[in-house]
Design a protein around this nucleic acid. Sequence first.
DNA 1: CGACCATTTGATATGGATCAAGCGATGTGG
DNA 2: CCACATCGCTTGATCCATATCAAATGGTCG
Lengths: 230, 230
Amino acid sequence: MLTQTAVPAVRSGSFKRPAMQVPPPPRNHELGSPVDLMGAPMSFARNAEIYGESEPAEYLYKVLSGTVRTYKVLTDGRRQVGGFYVAGDIFGLETGAEHTFSAEAITECKVLVIKRSTLMALAERDHEVARALWTITGGELRRSQSHIMLLIKSAQERVASFLLEMATRISAGNAVELPMSRQDIADYLGLTIETVSRTLTILENAATIELSSSRRIVLRNRPALNRLNA
Amino acid sequence: MLTQTAVPAVRSGSFKRPAMQVPPPPRNHELGSPVDLMGAPMSFARNAEIYGESEPAEYLYKVLSGTVRTYKVLTDGRRQVGGFYVAGDIFGLETGAEHTFSAEAITECKVLVIKRSTLMALAERDHEVARALWTITGGELRRSQSHIMLLIKSAQERVASFLLEMATRISAGNAVELPMSRQDIADYLGLTIETVSRTLTILENAATIELSSSRRIVLRNRPALNRLNA
DNA sequence: CGACCATTTGATATGGATCAAGCGATGTGG
DNA sequence: CCACATCGCTTGATCCATATCAAATGGTCG
């Protein structure tokens, strides 16, 4: 694309905090009460590591508030973000002995830390729990598979898919308050930060979205996004 | 807009050939004897569909001989191959109600067809079985996650990773007899058939591999491949 | 106000896609 | 048994989407 009339899209007001700080109603996933009782709540500061790749997977985690990213770094430094987790989501559950990704807090956040061995013991007796564990892993598998489908698409399609995904997970109406940086998005989508930024600008110029601030995006034309979602 | 085949519309009919026909010792995965007894063996011709995406996942499958591919096709025809399954591998196991990918026989093949409900009933009583199911899904999750890591790499890295993966799964020494076409490989790696072909040529010129025939590849320099594997 | 960090924008480079032949095996009908 | 159609693969020429390099802008905080 060429420069497009250099309309410096008016960034409405200076906003302060790209937060996500409103304690969202813990939309319960699988594993309800039993787990909530056996876990210990814990806080992590912005960018704090929750666990590292290939560390023993002694615990699993449930987000209470804030947002978490999982990622893997290749030897040469390229980083791939595996997923974003918000309130209610469970992450860090493994069938193997070690974590396959690392996990970090994107924002200040609170997570419930659950001992795997305890849960496994419980699953031994309670089928519901065993099934819940399997279902969570199955959910991750589906997420991972659609991530693969995402990575074969064009930049515009990836960004559109990302926005729609985020909209279903953390939107208030059509507005999405993104907790993560452009770099996180880029590493999730397998693009560069510049391409993400340019693509958002293109979508804004097409009136498909509105960037009220860099972290706040309003979906103006979902059909257009869905069309891109291929 | 990139890559991918437009749905393999033309099915070159009837053929026996491309290798892998030696009945390989069913290297048992999870789910040993119990399952092997409750499944019904079934044969599929080259390119025959085993199940389609979004069909009810009433059965799961264990490969006895031959090779299977799973794949998904986007609305515009781009195809992504999710994985290849050889003797001993289990595929089609879902936690949800429907298959997320389609499955086809790449070569003539025999698979054990297992009724999910039967297995679920068994899992209800037998913890070992329940755990095996979870472990299989966990294995698929890890495969899927490394597939994501593959898709952010360069063409040479993808091809090298692919060859090494195949070598560990179906090699005799350093020779790999590929059951799948270049198109299948391309759609697995998120590249075009031309790029796969050119990349193999480059690796051959670098004496990293040897193409005794287009389907038979000898790994001549594993360290070099491992280096590319990043 | 000034420093810093995140984001956007601009200019250019490039890896892989696309378009287009060519080539070698394999099977087919004469 | 041979010319010929196919099919799967390779090779070549060119194009283009996204990466890379570089700089400007803007928002935040001390």
